[in-house]
């Protein structure tokens, strides 16, 4: 079978005692893709990753990697490697031996595996750190070592479990770019788990949004951000405003829930505005590049984000306005 999918899950469920962590998931990851599994904690995204790595077995369903059924295959026989959330570096090895570990297991000669480890370390910009112990490195450096160790044996798929979770903001941003360019350079399939929607949107080619053991939507960052399938996705990915069916029927003629991005909303004068879109400002926070306002529209709470420098009303009633295209009617009910 020609492998048109890198990772394929079909009807996969995972039950831990009374808890259903995954509930009949179907998912296909394409070869060479940067794929994100996004969701709040407890949504099943990490369990999903562990099923692909082989640390967990599905209660039912099948898992395939490049067309090969790996259900029931232990992790050490799978062509996938994992970058762990807390890095999981071996404390009793130096950096070089950590990175060379998969090659040592494959009985590669010492000289060869040390050369390969050094090359992998160079790729993550850590050349010259081979003789240090993991304990002597900073969080960001450990993260890179974990990355080098996971790619040194050239897996078919690289799994990353919240890889940037423990890093500070600045480091996280630079690592995002680095991961992306590393993925392009290696031409590898990356599957990464995150609860940070910004990270998923900026790095991934496609995103699967998880909630309560199910996948709510799979699509490009643009898809899940602009065209969320339901209220959960709209709310979780970028905290959209959610408008109830009654209001949407008046505005767009269809009785459905709709999402509206805060940055698509303008503030206008009250005269001549739809009375349902008139309200007052309840909170204001300065975000540097923009300002975020909370509005109360007769009981409906709406957030508005305006670029810095725009003159904003400080008191009194205001009205909101937006383009019809900004209003996204949602397909399903969450």
């Amino acid at each position: 079978m020609p492998a048109s999918t890198a990772v394929s899950l079909s009807k996969v469920s995972r039950v831990f005692g009374p808890v259903t962590a995954l509930d009949g998931i179907d998912l296909d990851v394409r070869p060479g893709e940067f794929f994100a599994m996004l969701g709040p904690s407890g949504s099943g995204k990490t369990t999903c990753l562990r099923l692909v790595a082989g640390f967990e077995q599905p209660s039912s369903g099948r898992v395939a990697i490049f067309g090969e059924d790996v259900t029931g295959v232990p992790p050490y026989r799978r062509a996938v490697n994992t970058v762990f959330q807390d890095y999981a570096l071996f404390p009793h090895f130096d950096v070089r031996d950590n990175v060379a570990y998969p090659l040592m297991l494959r009985k590669v000669s010492k000289a060869e595996r040390h050369a390969a480890a050094e090359a992998a370390l160079e790729m993550v910009r850590l050349s010259g750190y081979g003789a240090r112990r993991p304990a002597q490195l900073s969080g960001g450096q450990r993260q890179r070592v974990a990355l080098a160790r996971a790619i040194v044996a050239r897996p078919k798929v690289l799994l990353l479990d919240e890889p940037l979770g423990a890093l500070d903001l600045k480091l996280r941003e630079s690592m995002q770019e680095e991961l992306k360019s590393l993925q392009r350079a290696l031409g590898l399939t990356f599957v990464f788990v995150t609860h940070d929607q910004g990270e998923a949107l900026s790095m991934a080619d496609r995103i699967a949004v998880f909630s309560a053991g199910r996948i709510e939507q799979v699509g490009s960052p643009e898809d899940v951000y602009r065209r969320p399938a339901n209220r959960f996705v709209a709310d979780f990915v970028g905290s959209a405003n959610i408008l109830p069916p009654g209001l949407v029927a008046r505005l767009a003629g269809e009785r459905r829930w709709a999402s509206l991005r805060p940055e698509d909303v303008r503030l206008v004068a009250c005269e001549g505005a739809d009375p349902a879109l008139v309200g007052r400002i309840t909170a204001r926070s300065y975000l540097g590049a923009s300002t975020r306002l909370a509005l109360d529209l007769g009981g409906l709470s709406v957030h508005v984000v305006r670029p810095a420098g725009e003159l904003l009303p400080t008191e009194g009633p205001v009205a909101i306005a937006f383009e019809r295209e900004a209003l996204h009617l949602m397909e399903r009910e969450a």
């Binding site: 992790p75 570990y101 998969p102």
Partner: peptide, 8 residues
């Protein structure tokens, strides 16, 4: 887990 993941 990491050891098994890396092929041990």
């Amino acid at each position: 887990d990491a050891s098994a993941d890396l092929g041990a």
